[in-house]
Nucleic acid binder design. Structure first.
Length: 596
DNA sequence: GCCGTTTTCGGCCCGACTGTTTTCAGTCG
């Protein structure tokens, strides 16, 4: 028990936490009416940090200059250093001291911004949500300048609902809601084209709302058709070009009806990301062009906008895939002709992480194999759980040998798909594996995974996984960060070190396609690729229908700039078996060509 | 607060919708 703790005795904040503090600063500056561009600087830096692949604290430890990062100058670099060293910075402390908590709470209500909040707080001397609700109930809010009865009623409703609006939906949930809605719109009067844009189209793992674009000869009829959709719970706005509704599921949907000749410009604009759009517009301005959702203009003359390709061409770029549009280097890569050729679902030839009724799957090995074959795959690896995972009836050596025998029999039958023998073996808290080497050596491949002791501190967790990666029989590290989207954060692990260890020991990193996992994360995919570490896009299927999830994994990989050549299971069975053989011999060709 | 083959100062993306007004401020994306 060391009583003496250095200021750095606590774990240094992650980028996401630094970003949270910058967002706090931006919100409080906004409330005090600070310069909008100063506020934007904090929000831009926050957005960058959330998406950046490396931890600022690691960069500081390595003596790197944070002011080299885009949107971060000397001042913000200093504040990041403060936050890393002490957990706070003087500006944040000052703002917290003079900002009323009620104002911060009110900022979470859509429709309320700093001006209205200041009017409420100053005009009515409101100091708590309860008082505000009271004032609204008594009809005192409508008397404020530029407030009225409608706004008062709206506020009252929002306060009653106490809705926190920051709910984001997993992409898979959004897709389930979007498909029937798109079908409804496509049947609508005079509607010709319907595309879901926004973060949905970029394949983000979660989406806040749906942005749908359509073309229609009769805009009003199209918007009416939209607001009358059966799943609509509430129409929040409805104008001449767009409408906003809330579905029963809680998902907010915007429909914008645009002219045919500006469809490409609108699609680009509403696909985002915001950072990408701003960068493209600035590039346009350098060329004397104005780019907005209606087209590309030189002066008042429209020179393009019917297709996205025209928008990109106007700024001298080839079309950039939606998954890359985050202003994280894609524009520079496009300008240099170095855009990646992103992996596609049809490139996958196999699936290296599949369960069966031997443990917690719901279908037999034969059923899983036939289902995979029906999806066009030519091989799968059966990788059931190992004994420690008792909740899943994990296999011991004897059980695994029975499974090996069954797989041999099925392969002898020739089902038209090759079944590889594998295991998803637990990485125990000390980094050893849950089954003896003897039985693991009888398999075609070994998938190792963490399913316990998520709470270990960063150093212990990292060392645990490094040790497993160093095991000569481990082929793949499954769901490397362990996060469950919206449910459980990733365990605390240094992914830079994991990627380095994977490279050193020729271990493949998995992109788990389960829509709850999507793990590797996109930023980690880029790290793996940069280090020359191959990935496998696997379903982790526990039922026959789950091979469809591979599409989510592919989208995740695409967001991580992954190409077919980076993915081991785009290889033919023969090539994959060769790779596994080389790994076993300690000298695989994969990943060996590029230096880390 | 950031940034720079037009700038180290003076810019910073910009249009739609709502609710309040009667020409526009506030908010959002």
């Amino acid at each position: 028990m060391a009583k003496k703790t250095t200021p750095a005795g606590h774990a240094p904040p992650r980028n996401s936490e630094i970003a949270d503090r910058f967002d706090d600063i931006a919100t409080m500056l906004d409330l005090e009416g600070a310069n909008q561009f100063r506020i934007r600087a904090y929000r831009n830096a926050s957005r960058f940090l959330r998406r950046y692949g490396r931890e600022a604290s690691d960069m500081i430890a390595g003596g790197e200059d944070l002011a080299e990062l885009p949107g971060i100058g000397d001042d913000l670099a200093g504040k990041i250093r403060d936050l890393v060293a002490t957990g706070t910075t003087s500006l944040l402390d000052d703002l917290r001291a003079k900002t009323l908590p009620v104002s911060l709470n009110l900022m979470r209500i859509p429709g309320l911004g700093p001006k209205r909040i200041r009017a409420l707080v100053d005009g009515l001397k409101i100091r708590s949500i309860g008082r505000l609700r009271q004032a609204a109930a008594e009809g005192r809010i409508r008397s404020l300048p530029r407030f009225g009865a409608r706004l008062e009623q709206y506020l009252l409703r929002m306060l009653e609902e106490r809705q926190s609006k920051s709910i984001r939906f997993p992409l898979s949930v959004a897709m389930t809601a979007a498909r029937p809605l798109v079908a409804h719109l496509e049947r609508g009067p005079t509607i010709s084209r319907v595309v879901v844009a926004g973060s949905y189209r970029r394949g983000l793992e979660t989406v806040g709302d749906l942005d749908i674009l359509a073309t229609a000869a009769d805009r009003k009829a199209a918007l009416d058709w939209f607001t009358r959709y059966g799943e609509v719970a509430e129409v929040r706005a409805s104008g001449t070009t767009r409408a906003t509704v809330l579905l029963r599921s809680g998902l907010q949907v915007d429909l914008r009806v645009v002219a045919e000749d500006s469809f490409g410009a609108a699609l680009h604009y509403f696909t985002g990301s915001k950072a990408h759009n701003i960068a493209v517009r600035l590039r346009g301005r350098e060329r004397g062009l104005k780019i907005n959702e209606y087209g590309v203009f030189r002066g008042s003359r429209r020179i393009g906008g019917g297709t996205e390709a025209e928008v990109f061409a106007a700024v001298g770029l080839p079309t950039i895939e939606p998954e890359l549009r985050e202003n994280l280097g894609e524009i520079e890569a496009a300008a240099a002709g170095k855009l990646p050729e992103l992996v596609r679902l049809k490139d996958l030839k196999g699936d290296l992480h599949v369960h069966s009724t031997y443990t917690d799957g719901t279908a037999s090995i034969r059923e899983m194999a036939l289902a995979a074959k029906a999806c066009g795959l030519s091989y799968i690896a059966i990788t059931d759980h190992s004994r420690r995972l008792t909740v899943a009836h994990g296999l011991d050596s004897a059980g695994l040998r029975r499974q090996i025998a069954e797989i041999d029999r099925l392969n002898a039958e020739d089902l038209g798909i090759r079944i590889l023998k594998g295991i998803e073996v637990d990485i125990l808290p000390n980094g050893s594996l849950d089954l003896p080497d003897g039985v693991l050596a009888e398999l075609d491949l070994v998938v190792a995974a963490v399913h316990s002791a998520f709470h270990l501190d960063r150093e212990a967790q990292t060392r645990r996984i490094e040790r497993a990666l160093a095991h000569h029989l481990v082929t793949i590290l499954a769901h490397p960060t362990g996060r469950l989207i919206g449910e459980r954060e990733a365990y605390d692990v240094d992914m830079d070190r994991i990627v380095r260890a994977a490279r050193a020991h020729w271990v493949i990193l998995e992109i788990n396609s389960d829509p709850e996992r999507l793990d590797l994360r996109d930023v980690d995919c880029r790290r793996a690729k940069a280090a020359g570490v191959p990935v496998s896009i696997d379903s982790d299927a526990h039922q026959v229908g789950a091979f469809a999830n591979l599409a989510y994994g592919v989208t995740q990989a695409r967001r991580g700039w992954i190409e077919a050549a980076d993915v081991v299971n785009t290889r033919s069975l023969e090539a994959l078996l060769r790779l596994l053989e080389e790994k076993r011999a300690g000298q695989p060709a994969v990943g060996a060509s590029t230096a880390a």
